[in-house]
Simulated assay, not measured.
Amino acid sequence: MTATGKRVVRSDLWISPAFDERLARESDISLAVFPIEGNDPLGRDLLAAAHVYHISAAKDELPQQWFARAELLSRCPDLLCVSAGGAGYDTVDVAACTAAGVAVVNQAGGNAVSVAEHTLGFMLGVSRRMLEGDRRMRREIGYTREDVMGREIRGKTVGLVGIGHIGTRVASLARAFGMEVIATDPFLSLDEIARRGAKAVSFDDLLAQSDFVSLHCPRDAGTLKLMNAKAFARMKKGAIFITTARGGIHDEAALVDALRSGHIAGAGIDVWDQEPPPLDHPLLAMDNVYATFHTAGVTHEARRNVAAIGAEQIVGLLRGERPPRLVNPEVWPAYEKRRARLFS
């Protein structure tokens, strides 16, 4: 095998230099970068020879011809792994990868601190009406402070839909603010949810009991439109909805209706069906909606951490180690056979 026998390919979308720096320390790994626009033949050629494709997880930034779908996989006979550059993998067809014997890994947990802090920022900002106060200060004089009077979060109940890396961190921060934490997670036992700092409840009970409902679950067939009109109606009147998960888990039109009716007091929204959302989106016109552009995990610290652990996971995987963040574990026997054949 040559000194650059193991080939990693990524696009030219921004990534922390920590990724390239870590791979550069491996003498048997080469890294190639293709432009997402302007030279498709180069991208196709590089991917056709790649062993690992480190793919952007940003579905509205990466052109769809570079998504890891069956058509692209069919042109990449040596591809062993698709490595998503974040906790999510919206740009990856996991089933198609599994069928092709391609491992899929993500970087779950790499940005947990940043997303959890953002979640608490939403909770504080919406409940204390900070954004409303800021906007009114900039456009009018004559209103009273009581006109933007908010509420403390101490003593309130936050319901976490999903308590993985991020949800566990949110639970810890929420308890530090004196909040009660409840959670639902179909992948965890009641004891494990308790160990992670929350009281386990059903989804319906969570909606009925929570002053804040905060989403921390993956986007998949089982969670699409999980927060629909019926779910918002089951929430406590005056509650606040928070999501830093993925667009599509909440029904945006249903949320607009719940806010307009006054049933939901406010919302903190970081993820959208279309990112960024159009400027005329009705949620952006509401002063009780704190809106951000999928930036909960976009901090200097989180981006460096995600890039570093992504590169480290690729290095280990190419050495033959089972990756710690394997999305499709059922592929592993087929992956090992393909890896042995390629690197024998």
Rank of each mutant, 00 (worst) to 15 (best):
M1C: 12
M1D: 02
V9H: 00
S11P: 03
D12T: 00
L13Y: 02
A18S: 09
R25F: 08
E26I: 08
S27W: 00
S27E: 15
S30Q: 14
P35D: 01
N39E: 14
L46E: 12
A50K: 13
V52Q: 03
H54D: 11
S56A: 12
A57R: 13
A57C: 09
A57W: 12
F67D: 06
A68V: 09
A87L: 08
Y89K: 03
V94Y: 10
V94C: 13
A100P: 07
V105F: 03
Q107L: 09
G109S: 09
N111C: 06
A112E: 11
V115Y: 02
V115M: 11
A116Q: 08
E117Q: 15
R135T: 11
M137Q: 13
R139A: 13
E146S: 14
V148R: 03
V158K: 05
G162Y: 09
G162W: 03
I163G: 06
I163M: 08
I166M: 09
R169N: 14
R175Q: 15
D185W: 00
D191I: 06
G197P: 01
V213Q: 03
A221M: 05
A221H: 08
A221S: 11
M227P: 09
M227R: 02
A231G: 11
F232C: 07
F232I: 12
K236D: 05
F241M: 04
F241H: 11
I242S: 07
G247M: 09
G248W: 09
I249L: 03
L255P: 04
R260M: 11
I264C: 10
I269D: 02
P276F: 10
P278S: 04
L279A: 14
L283A: 06
A291S: 14
A291V: 13
A296M: 08
T299H: 11
H300W: 10
V306L: 12
Q313W: 07
G320W: 01
V327G: 07
P329V: 10
A334H: 10
K337M: 05
